[in-house]
Amino acid sequence: MRKNMWMYIAAIFLTASAVVATDTGCRTFTTYTMTGRVDPEALFWDVQGAIKIVQAWNWAQKSITPEEEYFIGRSVSAAVMSRYYYRFYNGQVLATGQLTPGMLYYLYEIGSVLDYAAQDTPIALDGFYPIAGFHFMIMDNAEINAFSAPGGYVFVTSGFLALASNEDEAAAILAHEMGHVLLRHGVRMIKKSRQSQFRKVVMQETVEAVSPVGMDLLQGVVSDITEAMVLAGYARSLEYQADEFAYKLLYYSGYNPVALYKVIEKLHRMGLEHVASRQGWFSTHPKPIDRMKKLWKYMSKAGRPKYRLPRIRMLRYRRHARPLYHQYRRYSEFALRYQ
């Protein structure tokens, strides 16, 4: 009898190690260095990451391939870009497909740093990566808002960028949205009623049949995600997850992770000033104060660095964002007051 018990313990241990080993590429068994010394925080996060990966073992991740997510994302972005009548900052990029130096170019530079960090550092995910990489776009709008579509499309409003007072805060906004993409939150926003139907289609592999019923279903899937993104927002727990992810990503990429807390704090203060109009970002996210509390708890556990930045990251952000600062003076004055 006792012999059997040990067999079961061995089986359970092997199950756990198999899940971790296949998913993280044995990262759990490596050590990390941070500028020469062993970093206890990194180890803490590594264990957290392994737990999270096991938790994320659900149908959404398993049954939808990156290719499908790519096509869902394209349709969602197409819907956002043609349905919601946003003007685009540096719009000539969309006319020509060529990126010229300017705010969008600068945003791509920040985004690429985060992009590489997400793959090169221990935060790297369970083999999922958007097949077209990340793509960023600035919407020329006074609204404070940012959202992302599955497959790596990230949209930020120019108003939100005017609210950031340095590069790290802009990176925090992008990192949060990239978190939604890399944790594959988009597909979870498909409505419950449609989910079972969609799952059936996915399982049966009946595909090429482009029947009217199938088309309706797929259009429904796209509009569910689009609505969740633009109007309703993700579920509260997913926002917290994305915050936590963003904090880690900022830390590993070399940015100051406290910038995320600072951005949310600004939104909180902003919200106090504009309680009546719960527009844009305020309508799609949980109350900033709740996120601040959660994040503070997490930061305290993981070790909270001081909010000090190299001067160049402040200067070069202001240099690039000057036109935005000028355009949205109300936000930028606020941003500089509460930096």
Partner: peptide, 23 residues
């Protein structure tokens, strides 16, 4: 739209950015 790796590396160098932990 895509940036090449060298542009991003120069950008990191200028901004004093360094990946904190590498496997």
């Amino acid at each position: 739209i895509q940036l090449d790796v060298k542009t991003v590396k120069d950008f990191m160098l200028q901004g004093k950015l360094r990946f904190r932990a590498v496997v």
